[in-house]
Amino acid sequence: MKVEFRNVSKVLIYSVIVFPIIWIFIFSLFTNWAFPSIFGFGEFNINIWERLLDSESLLLSGLLLSLIISLITAILSVSLGFATSEVIYKSRYKNTLLLSAYFPYVLSPVVLALLLQVYFVKAGLSGSLIGVIVALFMIVYPYSVLFFVGYWNENLINMKQLVRTLGGNKFSAWTKVVIPVSKPVISLCFFQCFIIAWFEFGLTNLLGVGKVKTLPVQIYMYIQEANPYYAAVASCLMIAPPLFLLFINRRWMSESIKFSPLR
């Protein structure tokens, strides 16, 4: 009886989790979903999907823009975060430094953007791709530092030193041991950094002044325009890359909670 209850609960949870993805995808294939039809989604219409192939499509450019922004932010944050985290891990002031990393990360990004807006305008970064990347970096980099500080340990430091006494220089200590050994963790951190940048709406919208039309900005725009079918296609485009990265990282995912800054 108990086992059955467990299985039923599991199935229920899985459905709650998986249903939205399937539903949004099906929804994106139709238009004119008139009340009170439930599963008869209206007219089958993959026009919006087809328009993705058009080089002038806003959705396509949004997808590429989001990918570029998130990839650059994640690559910069992971590489600089990993290097910084070692120094902080070894520092006498580790906890104080970590506190300062938590703050921009916990503070609402849109409020952070509001506080920074004036400086971005003065620096000519407002409304530009670089501006959005710089602002995202200010949230994602501290996250990456927090993530990696939780990962560094004495064994890894000792291994790095061992390479030196075996005849390797600082560079080979990183490239031949630290990075290969930490590959799963780097991959996980990359995934999470990418996701934070990929998800961000408020900050991008405010500092991008509506000019940097990433996918979340577009979804909001389509909902405001009462155009749920475009929003659904944009939503599918937003779900796909994280799920792809999740699939790549599947073997290490459960480990990731160990290093999560929200500990």
């Binding site: 064994n155 000792n158 291994m159 030193q161 061992l162 030196r164 006494t165 075996l166 005849g167 390797g168 220089n169 041991v177 290969p180 050994v181």
Partner: peptide, 16 residues
């Protein structure tokens, strides 16, 4: 360290 030709071995074998 890499120029000293002195190898330091830890308590753990620390195999990569």
């Amino acid at each position: 360290p890499e120029l000293r030709k002195v190898v330091y071995l830890y308590q753990e074998p620390l195999l990569f």
